[in-house]
Design a protein around this nucleic acid. Structure first.
Length: 227
DNA sequence: AAGAGTTCCAACCGCGCGCCA
DNA sequence: ATGGCGCGCGGTTGGAACTCT
């Protein structure tokens, strides 16, 4: 592996699958180590970005709603280009997505507003929302969107549409059920018990073959061991 | 139909911060 | 104190997709 060129550019479906497999099992941490363990010829940074911006559960990938657009507009005026901060107020949206949306859609509107006193107006052509028009200063976002009170609904996955996203969605949904069941088992059995065969395991067997667990557990056991 | 111009967004890059040995 | 590591953030870029002429 040493000296091997790192891959760049668009991610392949196989790479996504592999990354999901490892991140869901090992957690969102130590991205450099994780990148090595996955066997993907990607940097840890690249893996983290892919996960955070595209593969992570609960992400929305559809067009921004009028409500979201208003929020972005208002928070950008309030905080400036603090995209990660703004993203925390928009469940299911990433800083990258918001940043891109701002640059391509809202920046012009803001400039127009600043230059000519043109009031902010939602671009209804891009959303399915009802027409709405308001001055940003008057807008106060709902408490339900405040990061400290909002809980991310897993059903947001249902908003996705590509075949790839659909199978991830189904899988995550099954996993959620399994996790709930497993948590109950853990309460009864103590925390160091091993998981029973779940749909998640079935999934992994299907995608990575029957030997997946052997090497997976071996790797999982050593990855975070820094000694 | 096709070439030019524009828009959009996934991914990359560099920087800075916090933590730890 | 300091140097290395891991990570997150914001800015930028490349190229695919779309629109215009």
């Amino acid at each position: 592996m040493q000296g091997e060129q790192l891959r760049k550019g668009p991610w392949l479906q196989e790479e996504d699958e592999q990354l999901i497999f490892f991140v869901t099992r090992l957690g969102e941490r130590r991205w450099d180590s994780l990148a090595k363990v996955t066997g993907l010829r990607r940097s840890g940074k690249s893996c983290r970005l892919r996960w955070m911006n595209y593969l992570r559960p609960n992400l929305k990938h559809g067009p921004f709603s009028a409500e979201e657009e208003r929020l972005i507009f208002q928070l950008q005026q309030q905080w400036g280009n603090k995209w990660s901060k703004i993203a925390r107020c928009l469940p299911g949206r990433t800083d990258n997505e918001i940043k891109n949306y701002w640059r391509t859609h809202l920046k012009k509107k803001t400039q127009a507003q600043q230059e000519g006193g043109v009031q902010y107006k939602v671009d209804n052509a891009r959303t399915d929302e009802k027409s709405s028009e308001l001055v940003s200063q008057d807008y106060n976002y709902s408490d339900s969107y405040r990061p400290e009170t909002y809980t991310f609904p897993l059903s947001d996955w249902e908003l996705t549409s590509s075949p790839h996203e659909i199978w991830i969605s189904d899988w995550i949904e099954e996993l959620q059920t399994d996790q709930t069941e497993t948590e109950h088992q853990h309460i009864e059995q103590d925390s160091n018990s091993s998981c029973t065969e779940s749909s998640y395991d079935s999934y992994n067997r299907m995608r990575f073959g029957n030997n997946y667990d052997t090497w997976d557990y071996a790797v999982a056991g050593s990855l975070w061991d820094m000694n």
